[in-house]
Amino acid sequence: MRSRFIPGTRAAPWLACLGLLVLWQIAALALKNDSFPTAWAAIRAIPLILADKEALINILASQRRMTIGFAVAIVVSVPLGLMMGRSRAVASFFNPLLMVIYPVPKAALMPIIMLWLGVGDLSKTLVIFLGVSLPVIYHSFEGAKSVEEKMLWSGAAMGLSAAQRMVRIVLPAALPEILTGCRTGLVLALITMVTSEMIARQSGAGNILFNALDMGEYDLVFAMIIIIGAMGICLDAMFETLRARLVRWSEPQFDMPLSFS
């Protein structure tokens, strides 16, 4: 039942994109609904957004917040997750807190955080940070937990201190799992970014989307959806390339993302 290597795998996602766009085009032509433009009309509207200087600045500002939030989350969450994975006490200390936070939509904290910190970059970056942290902690935790005990024993026998074992053995051994978490976190960063901008409605990609919706410029709505979608797919593909290089020694993984927690 194991999936085999199929020639032409590289082209398949492009074909899938094309297929989805064609499907959209046909559906739009069939429905003849004013508020559902054809794929072609939406694609033609993309340059309108990208040529608009203000919109472009908005999108880039969104990107910057996303990058900062993501980076800070990785720096904080990976060590925390690894420590939780190797120490039962640390794990049982943090687990209930994380379980309580888990089902809370991070972007929903936006109104409260805005109340405290204002509508600036800080609030939005903080929300992205919160959104990314949980899956990265979770996957680092799982990765560190499943590190072979005997590997650590050999490390200790070779004279590595506890801290050295963490960096030289646990971190690389858990790397495949950590990177899976980062991949999930990256897409979540984008989702949280868009959602928080949809809720805060001040600036950014999510705001452009809903402004266009309010103005009834449906071509622009769908063009913006394509832009955000493309951002997600490109980020994921880039990260996947990086991941494959970093953990080439690991067992071949499924080329589909496996977890979206």
Partner: peptide, 9 residues
Amino acid sequence: VLAPLPKVA
């Protein structure tokens, strides 16, 4: 293609 797409968009 669809899994990494931010569905909320």
